[in-house]
């Protein structure tokens, strides 16, 4: 049996009577690079929200390393190793790039001592250093001190990714990380994520850019109208009849084929 780090078991979620996630079950294999795809409104972001605890689930279980985390408070889920980025940028607008990334380290420095550690006064402390290096590695080395509200969209988008990955979580969930990036930035992002993956972080990525998905991911889960319609190897997804039908009339999969 494959070793799954994260497992969605028979999960359902309704929003005001409307079933948005319908008895969905899938496994994310440890160390895999799993894509979660599907047409707009399929429920991909909702899956992330249910895993990270933004909303409670109505039914089912979410297992991390075999433990049900679906009733844990939001805050404790990142401490267990679940980190995410957001489809619509949710950086802290008044913080600098490096401060946003240092927020991503919070789950590793929760003692009173580390809460009172002056991150800003000792510029080469290990937290600031780690954050600045991670930014540099993502090609953002010129931005650490800048307030993020003033930075271009593509840069903010990548800071989101760096903030989510800095804690080296067990499962890194990225919601459309390549949206709005140009070709070069997308390729750089893919290389960055490959490095993250090689360090043992499991990736769960929502992305519409199928070329990006095919190059980066080995596993794919496809959602349509809140139901799982495919789970398997990335190399097989485009031959699947149900997936083809779900995307009929849209360009997402056809383009990449």
């Amino acid at each position: 049996m494959p070793d799954s780090v994260l497992s969605f078991q028979n999960v359902s979620k309704n929003f005001s009577g409307l079933r948005v996630i319908d008895e969905v079950t899938f496994d994310v294999e440890r160390g895999s690079r799993t894509a979660l795809i599907g047409p707009n409104g399929a429920g991909k972001t909702t899956v992330f929200n249910l895993i990270s605890g933004v909303y409670p689930i109505d039914q089912g279980q979410v297992l991390l390393d075999g433990d049900d985390i679906s009733t844990l408070p939001v805050r404790q889920r990142i401490n267990r190793g679940i980190s995410r980025s957001f489809q619509n940028i949710r950086l802290m607008p008044h913080l600098s790039a490096v401060e946003n990334v240092m927020l991503g380290q919070h789950s590793h420095s929760r003692s009173i001592g580390s809460l009172l550690f002056p991150l800003g006064w000792l510029p080469r402390n290990r937290w600031a250093k780690q954050a600045e290096e991670a930014l540099a590695q993502a090609g953002l080395g010129t931005y650490p001190g800048e307030v993020v509200a003033n930075l271009p969209y593509g840069v903010q988008k990548r800071i989101e990714v760096v903030r989510a990955m800095i804690s080296e979580p067990k499962v890194l969930m990225l919601d459309e990380p390549a949206a709005g990036l140009n070709e070069q930035e997308t390729e750089d992002l893919r290389l960055l994520l490959e490095q993250v993956s090689e360090r043992g972080v499991t990736l769960l990525v929502v992305e519409h850019d199928m070329q990006f998905v095919r190059r980066l991911c080995d596993q794919v889960v496809v959602l349509n109208f809140g139901k799982k319609i495919f789970e398997g190897l990335a190399s097989e997804v485009q031959e699947d009849q149900a997936v083809k039908e779900a995307y009929l009339g849209t360009e997402d999969v056809g383009d990449a084929a």
Binding site: S52, G53, V54, V74, R75, R77, I78, N79, S83, R84, F86, R90, M92, P93, H94, L95, E99, M102, L103, G104, H106, S107, R110, L115, L119, R163
Partner: peptide, 18 residues
């Protein structure tokens, strides 16, 4: 940093463990 993060976006700050 946590204070300013809570000021800017409390739900997201919480998601990062604050």
């Amino acid at each position: 940093l946590s204070m300013r993060a809570v000021h800017d976006d409390e739900p997201v700050a919480t998601l990062f463990g604050v």
